[in-house]
């Protein structure tokens, strides 16, 4: 093989093939996806998915900046493939349309921590999320998630008593006497984002499992553990 131009052509053609197949074709097929409009059982028109409200979108930026994606996936594999649905990480598999507003899409490749696709539904409590971020050992003893003390401010309790959003901590994690732990704006945004993560609406290409099946899934989930620690 001594003829340079032939080599060049071959090199370019081979990559061009997958560039068309795995870049252009997916963009052609999925790049124009739009939200689904349907009418639910109560006769209400539902549009899904919807863009996130402002605070949750700011929280997505915090999530990106702190690199949460390196331990938490946001994708639910289909029933019978892994235990995603049995663990209660989602009611149905996720599909491309669930992600049309995500920039960047943070599907994740690691589950050092649990999947977060549906965390907003599994754990709606703001207090829980804030304590968990302040120190994961408070809510999930034995977790390897790092604490995020820099998302909180430890400050002296004001003259009017503890502020409304101070964390209710006790035992070894409690703030020193006369001090309180207050979430920063970033912490609140991050929690708003986590609580916005919900994929429980059905889509034509990914319907919710029928009544009986979903009951099974739910009961096995509650039998094993609380959703929060899963």
């Amino acid at each position: 093989m001594n003829y340079g131009p032939l080599l060049f052509l071959g090199i370019l053609f081979t990559l061009a093939s997958s560039w068309v197949g795995l870049v252009l074709m997916p963009n052609r097929q999925l790049g124009g996806l739009t939200p689904d409009t349907s009418t639910n059982a109560a006769g209400v028109v539902v549009v899904y998915p919807q863009a996130r409200p402002g605070e949750a979108q700011q929280g997505a930026e915090i999530y990106r900046s702190l690199g949460c994606v390196y331990c938490h996936s946001q994708q639910v594999r289909p029933e019978g493939f892994g235990s995603d649905i049995e663990r209660g990480w989602g009611k149905r598999r996720t599909v491309s349309r669930d992600y049309i507003y995500d920039k960047p899409v943070m599907l994740g490749t690691s589950r050092t921590g649990p999947d977060l696709t549906n965390i907003g539904e599994r754990q709606p409590s703001v207090e829980w999320h804030l304590s968990h971020l302040y120190n994961p050992q408070i809510t999930s003893k034995g977790s390897v998630m790092p604490p995020y003390p820099f998302l909180f401010e430890v400050r002296p309790v004001g003259a009017r008593g503890p502020s409304a959003d101070a964390l209710k901590l006790s035992g070894e994690h409690a703030a020193p006497a006369g001090f309180e732990v207050v979430p920063t704006a970033a912490a609140k945004q991050l929690v708003a984002y986590l609580r916005s993560l919900k994929t429980s609406s059905p889509l034509p290409e990914a319907p919710l499992p029928r009544k009986g099946e979903s009951d099974d899934a739910k009961s096995s989930a509650t039998a094993t553990n609380t959703p929060a620690s899963k």
Partner: peptide, 15 residues
């Protein structure tokens, strides 16, 4: 077609 042509060319040129 291009692949076949390239192969023919290569064989013809003693590659």
């Amino acid at each position: 077609a291009v692949a076949l042509w390239a192969l023919r060319w290569a064989v013809g040129h003693g590659e």
